[in-house]
Write a protein that binds this DNA or RNA. Structure first.
Length: 748
DNA sequence: CGGATTTAACTTTTT
DNA sequence: GTTAAATCCG
């Protein structure tokens, strides 16, 4: 009997036992969910609509597999989309079982980073390789383009970064791409791509895409390594399968090649990451890729009211490329969805807050019941201001992420270099930060020396004595820097990352630089550094054997949504993308205007438009009870205020489940204090005046819409980029672009 | 050479 | 309103 045959006879016996022993485990599931859980072997696709309990199914399945001895915890691999989802999954599984030791739950990136570290020697890496984020990648490509004397204006950085990413996600390496070169752009792209791969490898680093493609390379070139993992993971489960790309599919296909027990869960209607290379065909063609796949459909929704589901369906059914299905629910009919038409983005903020307060007052809701969703991060500012003005506490997810702040990235660059001396990109960031007198000329000399002697930049710093062109006084500075890094590099094995980071921040003077400065910005930066130090302490506390490399990896792969605290008593603001997988009693979707949502760039392209529509579907189905949809007649986009048309998605909504409220479309004028500088029929804001004649000079009294009265301290620049610094009553000073700032001049 | 100040360019979504 | 790049000045 082969291993597999033996297993299947065992399975029959075990199944009977399983039904008994796991009654309580499966009791809380409906018929379809139970079947999906019980079908353990072979390929399984669970098409799970929004709110139909797909995470429950995965968690129950893991518990079921372990409880009924199909597999030990360490033989199960579960892949989720975010770290937070992984954590939740882990918690759920733990609640069913006593022992889940060794279970592999994580994101694609974290799981395969772990495998890469274990197997680094097979792919000519060392296990302390660092991970470059999008920012690092951009900088590296920029350096390359400068070195190759390519015009970044002619060939945009974003386009090159994006295309490199797309090629990698399709498993096209630079060698293969060379054969596909057609246009001059391709030629440039090829050059940059090849050089990028060379340098990133020299730096013992990899980017997000490499975390997927390198394991594939590893498995292709080392069959014995592949076999090891194929035999290790008897059961593989993948959540949010609709958002996987070709490379990720390939990886799953590879690693499941021996037992072939793959269970993927997803919803083609919620595929919203096509722009990142996610391939919706992975789910639509699952049966083709995994023959004899069994398919289960979960169509009962436990989250939303009937009206919300009806609305969501009326929109998404306009998409062509989808597996047809319709969610149903035993929940109440619920209230109709409210469509609000407002004057502009400020009015949007006001009217939204009105409704929010109404919900709090009438329905006794707490702030944490609400989420405010928008298409682009830039929309959050006005909404935030409104909330702040009304004293409503809020949490914002996304935007400038903590680990992407300058001061944090500076420390991280130090740590990356200390962890991996070959990381030249990070080294360049810190070589003269804080300023120690190593300027661009000196750096050029060091780079040249490194290139001609074929050594890393850091090594050339160590050999600075041999470089004739550098003056003795500078050599001393460079040597000091070399010794600083070297000291910590050798210390890293002896002391914990926690101690190391604290000592480093002290010695390098990174914190002192900000502490000495009393401006609010510097104070905030100092606080961020302290927060970072606390995070390192936390990490060291939570892990038995904390290493610098593993800490850096965790930091590189963490996202904002992972740190979001849903228990706080605050309104949550986030993009529609971030909201995937979450649910809230009340959902506001803002900026529903043609060109914003759906975005202008998607209007011409049917596939892109369908993805926007799915994004709207995701937004609607986050709501349990109540939905407010808002669109404004006018909105400032980029530079100018432009009239807006309602989103086509609003027209697609079933009229039977919506009510409209347009009472907010009348212009609400800014109340002016004092006499206006010019007298027109209608009240006038400063914006109107500034075009004519700059009236601003130090000493003038102004009234700001948000911050109140203050006095101009300084005026700089001219025309549209004119800036003013205003000192407010509480002593706070703020800088504004006077053309856009919402303040009026007061005459005394 | 380095720091400060000014100007320009930029906003789609993110592991 | 933000950030990076360019320019100017000591």
């Amino acid at each position: 009997m082969t291993d597999i045959e033996k297993r299947s006879t065992e399975t029959i016996i075990e199944l009977r036992i399983a039904v008994k022993t796991s009654l309580n485990l499966l009791d809380s599931l409906n018929k379809a969910q139970q079947e999906a859980v019980r079908t353990t072997d072979g390929a399984v696709l669970v098409l799970a609509g929004a709110g139909s309990g797909k995470t429950r199914v995965i968690a129950h399945k893991i518990a079921y597999l372990i409880k009924n001895k199909y597999a030990y915890p360490w033989e199960i691999l579960a892949v989720t989309f975010t770290n937070k989802a992984a954590e939740e999954m882990k918690n759920r599984v733990t609640s069913f079982l006593k022992d889940d030791n060794g279970l592999w739950i994580g994101t694609f990136h974290s799981i395969f980073a772990r495998i890469l570290r274990l197997e680094a020697k097979h792919i000519k890496f060392t296990s302390d390789f660092v991970i470059y984020d999008t920012d690092d990648k951009k900088k590296l490509i920029k350096n390359i383009m400068q070195d190759l004397v390519l015009d970044t204006n002619q060939y945009s950085l974003e386009a090159i970064c994006g295309t490199v990413s797309k090629l990698k996600n399709k498993l096209i390496g630079h060698e293969e791409f060379q054969k596909l070169v057609k246009t001059p752009f391709d030629q440039v792209l090829f050059q940059v791509f090849a050089e990028y791969q060379k340098r990133i490898k020299q730096s013992n680093a990899c980017d997000f895409d490499d975390l997927i493609t390198l394991p594939i390379e590893l498995f292709r070139n080392n069959p014995q390594v592949l076999k090891k993992y194929q035999k290790k993971f008897k059961y593989i489960l993948v959540d949010e399968y609709q958002d996987t790309n070709y490379a990720q599919y390939k990886l799953i296909h590879f690693i499941s090649g021996f037992y072939k027990n793959v269970c993927v869960v997803g919803d083609d209607d919620q595929s919203i990451y096509g722009w990142r290379g996610a391939d919706i065909r992975n789910i639509l063609e699952f049966e083709k890729n995994f023959p004899e796949a069994k398919i289960f459909r979960l169509e009962q929704n436990y989250r939303s009211t009937k009206n919300i589901l009806k609305a969501a369906h009326s929109v998404v059914r306009n998409n062509k490329g989808r597996k047809s299905k319709e969610l149903w629910s035993e929940n109440d009919q619920g209230e109709k969805l409210m469509v609000l038409n407002v004057y502009d983005e400020y009015d949007e903020s006001d009217r939204m807050i009105e409704k929010l307060k109404g919900e709090v007052f009438k329905n006794k809701r707490s702030f944490s019941d609400f989420v405010i969703l928008y298409r682009t991060n830039a929309q959050s500012r006005v909404l935030e201001e409104g909330l702040r003005r009304n004293g409503i506490s809020y949490i914002i997810v996304g935007g400038v992420k903590f680990y992407e702040r300058k001061e944090i990235k500076d420390i991280l660059a130090y740590l990356k270099v200390i962890s991996n001396l070959k990381d030249s990109l990070s080294l360049l960031r810190i070589i003269n930060y804080p300023n120690r007198g190593i300027g661009s000329k000196t750096i050029e000399k060091l780079k040249k020396w490194a290139a001609t002697h074929n050594i890393s930049l850091f090594e050339s710093i160590g050999k600075v004595d041999q470089i004739g062109e550098i003056s003795d006084s500078r050599k001393k500075i460079i040597k000091d820097f070399y010794q600083l890094i070297n000291k910590y590099s050798s210390l890293k094995k002896e002391i914990s990352p926690n101690e190391l980071t604290h000592a480093l921040v002290d010695e390098s003077g990174l914190l002192l630089k900000y502490k000495g400065d009393s401006t609010p910005e510097s104070q905030e930066r100092a606080n961020n550094i302290k927060e970072f130090l606390a995070a390192v302490s936390d990490y060291a506390f939570q892990h038995e054997n904390p290493t610098l490399a593993s800490f850096l990896e965790e930091v590189s792969l963490i996202t904002d949504i992972d740190t979001w605290d849903r228990t706080a008593n605050a309104v949550t603001l986030m993009t529609l993308h971030s909201a995937k997988g979450l649910e809230f009693p009340v959902v506001f979707i803002t900026g529903l205007e043609q060109g914003l949502f759906p975005l202008a760039s998607s209007l011409e392209d049917q596939n892109k438009l369908e993805e926007e529509r799915r994004l709207f579907y995701v937004g609607l189905t986050r709501a349990k009870e109540r939905v407010y949809l808002i669109w404004a007649d006018n909105r400032r986009r980029f530079r100018d205020v432009e009239p807006q048309e309602p989103s086509i998605f609003l027209n697609e909504l079933d009229p039977a489940v919506i009510i409209t409220d347009s009472s907010g479309t009348k212009k609400r004028y800014v109340q002016k204090a004092g006499k206006p500088a010019y007298s027109f029929d209608s009240p006038l804001t400063y914006e109107d005046v500034s075009q004519e004649e700059p009236l601003l000079k130090p000493g003038i009294l102004v009234e700001h819409e948000v911050y109140g009265r203050g006095r101009i301290v300084k005026v700089s620049g001219k025309g549209k980029s004119q800036k003013v610094i205003i000192s407010f009553k509480n002593g706070e000073q703020k800088k504004f672009l006077s053309n856009y700032a919402r303040f009026t001049i007061l005459t005394e």
